[in-house]
């Protein structure tokens, strides 16, 4: 019973925390470049404002365009809710392992890219085409990272992986370091951050994700933005759950409730640390040309393959 309660808390937590993380990164980036910037709570206000506006839909948009936002949001939210954040014993975690989580996000992207082509404008097409190009290189990289992790831990189940790392059986490994770097590179590409894509751009030709959702407005846009925020939180939680699971509560019994509190506090700390690093990184680097992205992601792909091979070599020595 308690575990179902925790699962519910987790579902609500990721939903409520995601806009704050995005707002936090935005504020921090503004401060870093010397602006005052909006309050970290601004995304909540933006979302609520968008939700209450009427949705303007292009004349020849079909049901694909209209149903995509809610499905994309639901898929992203589900993926984020299936990553253990502050407790391990969540009943839904068994529904999808890491590979399935990546694929759930893949489904969301698929629908999003289709919606981008639905109205029949050239910007929608350019966004969809580039998004799928980036995804087609990012996904194999992330699967190879999963491969490396699974070689250590013999599992693709996140609670199991987190528990294994918590038990201290891994230690510091070169392969895991490479896998971490590759995963961060992929996460940057998948969440459309600088240097792959610029979430704050107002120049259409440099847009990838923003060009794809150009036709959306009102509540549809709110759902898509919320989905994008949840997706960022998903990757931060994922990296935390695999590479820094410390503090995640293992017990769901009565005495575990105190641990859950500690887990929650530590999780918030990890998320904001992640946001801080992201803001620092984004401020310090320039966006790259869209055709350099393939080199960036091929680098991630090769790093993760190298991680696997290093692991075999180190095991044989």
């Amino acid at each position: 019973m308690l575990s179902f309660l925790l699962q519910l808390v987790q579902l609500l937590l990721v939903l409520l925390l995601a806009p704050l993380l995005t707002g936090f990164v935005r504020t921090l980036k503004a401060r870093l470049v010397g602006r005052r910037g909006p309050s970290p709570a601004q995304p909540y206000r933006d979302l609520w404002r968008l939700l209450r506006k009427e949705a303007v839909v292009a004349e020849n948009a079909s049901w694909v365009f209209r149903s995509a936002p809610s499905l994309v949001f639901a898929l992203s939210w589900l993926a984020a809710a299936l990553v253990p954040t502050f407790a391990l014993d969540l009943p839904l975690l068994r529904a999808a392992d890491l590979i399935a989580l990546v694929a759930i996000l893949g489904s969301a992207r698929f629908l999003q890219a289709l919606a981008g082509m639905d109205v029949g404008t050239s910007f929608g097409g350019i966004g969809s085409s580039r998004e799928m190009m980036i995804a087609s290189l990012a996904e194999p990289a992330i699967l190879l990272v999963i491969f490396t992790i699974s070689l250590f831990i013999h599992s693709t189940m996140l609670p199991h992986i987190a528990g294994f790392v918590l038990a201290g059986e891994v230690g510091i490994r070169v392969s895991l370091g490479l896998a971490l770097i590759a995963l961060i590179m992929v996460a940057i590409a998948e969440t459309g951050r600088i240097p792959v894509d610029n979430p704050a751009t107002h120049l259409e030709l440099t847009m990838v994700h923003e060009a794809m959702v150009l036709e959306y407005s009102g509540r549809h846009l709110a759902l898509i933005e919320a989905g994008q925020m949840v997706r960022l939180l998903f990757f931060v939680s994922l990296i935390a759950a695999i590479f820094a699971p410390w503090g995640i509560a293992e017990a769901s019994t009565a005495e575990g409730v105190g641990l859950v509190g500690i887990g929650l506090a530590l999780y918030l700390g990890k998320v904001f640390a992640g946001g801080l690093l992201l803001a620092l990184f984004e401020t310090g680097i320039a966006k790259m040309r869209v055709f350099r992205v393939s080199e960036f992601l091929a680098g991630a792909l090769l790093l993760s393959l190298l991680a696997t091979i290093f692991l075999y070599v180190s095991q044989s020595l």
Binding site: E54, A55, V56, V57, A58, G120, T121, G125, I126, S128
Partner: peptide, 23 residues
């Protein structure tokens, strides 16, 4: 809100009438 309005495509303010401009 559940209001919905149909309008011409936005396309950054420069919609092109020809379907050949699509991807």
């Amino acid at each position: 809100s559940n209001r919905l309005r149909r309008a011409p495509a936005w396309d950054c303010g420069f919609p092109d009438a020809s379907p050949r401009t699509q991807y």
